[in-house]
Nucleic acid binder design. Structure first.
Lengths: 195, 195
DNA sequence: TACGATGTGATGCACTTGCATCGGAACGGG
DNA sequence: CCCGTTCCGATGCAAGTGCATCACATCGTA
């Protein structure tokens, strides 16, 4: 057997470069050449890993989605002794990507969401991620409160985090204001349902 | 004085074409040539109306923003006798763009929002729109409830509508589910603050 | 060591992009 | 009537795009 290359790790490396570029210039600024340059790889290598550009974008979206989900899971595992309420608080603040160091991820995510509105392949991946988060939120809410419709509350909460993130990105809200709104919403959730 | 053309109406006509194209293929699919063809205008005319492509996009964003705001205002004026609560309900459902006939507008809006994350000029316009809506929501909430922080509630509500719209667009939520979540949130708002 | 299967990356290609240019049509004042 | 100002639309152009191609390293095997 001749030379062998770890394709998967290279794909991740390329996906990383895609995210960097998408953060800087939006998804439109992502070209095969720039991606190759950013990933310190030749264009040929990129084309071998992904037959087409869309395939590359789909993979990159899955990559960043997995990374975000993993961070949420890590955050939850980090403080397991706490109540479901604080767990949900941690999860939402993590997903909102409000911390400056996650601003890039948020921009990339938003770029993908917009593209997904006209690209079924991307929408598919996105739905998978959202469904997973929705399930997580539903479980946590059901555990922490006595609300009759945890699913609906989870839907609301997930949409709220996404909307807040968006508003921060375009500069309509300060991160603190977004966090404040989120905290307030959670507090009301506890107050209504569990007291 | 030689031949005169109503520049403003032509600009609107072009902006309309931009929206049609953005709805179909995203903002990346908006090229000067396609826009000209869609607007039944020569490319030269497009270039006379807008010096650069970005200028055209900025105008188009302002155009669609104004149209949405106008529709909200019209909806409010339509039922002036009702309470501030129903007014807010109408405004939010209008802004959520959940009705199928507004799906196109929603896609265009999302495309612009994503682009605004990396384009200060677009973000500027967007902030203006959001600020206007935030003010409207704040007034209505203050009028309908006794909440101590109408501004925060308005922020939350605006972000929620945006997030719900997004989730419907990517196919994660059915429009009915989004409306249900929105209604539930409003109901809680009344229950908490005003009763 | 010689071979051949793999992975590589420079290059080519057809195409599209945004923008600049320019001859001429259209229209109103002299 | 005619001329000058204003607008139009076709064309040109350089840059950049995604994708295909192909000679060449690179490595395990025989």
């Amino acid at each position: 057997m001749p030379k062998q290359v770890d394709h998967e790790s290279r794909r991740r490396q390329i996906a990383e470069a895609v995210c960097l570029l998408a953060d800087e210039h939006g998804l439109e600024g992502v070209t095969l050449r720039d991606v190759a340059a950013r990933a310190d790889v030749s264009m040929g290598a990129v084309q071998r890993c992904f037959r087409t550009k869309e395939e590359m974008l789909v993979f990159a979206l899955g990559h960043i989605g997995a990374r975000i989900s993993a961070r949420v899971a890590a955050r939850l595992a980090e403080s397991p002794a706490q109540s479901a309420r604080t767990a949900l608080g941690h999860a939402t603040t993590e997903i909102s990507l409000l911390r400056p160091e996650h601003r890039a991820e948020a921009r990339v995510w938003l770029a993908f969401v917009a593209q997904a509105a006209v690209s079924p392949a991307l929408a598919e991946i996105l739905r998978g991620n959202y469904t997973g988060l929705h399930g997580l939120f539903t479980r946590l809410i059901a555990e922490a409160t006595a609300t009759p419709d945890a699913e609906r509350e989870a839907r609301t909460l997930l949409a709220l985090t996404d909307g807040l993130t968006t508003h921060v990105l375009v500069g309509h809200l300060a991160p603190e204001a977004a966090l404040d709104a989120l905290d307030s919403h959670l507090a009301r959730l506890w107050g209504d349902m569990a007291a």
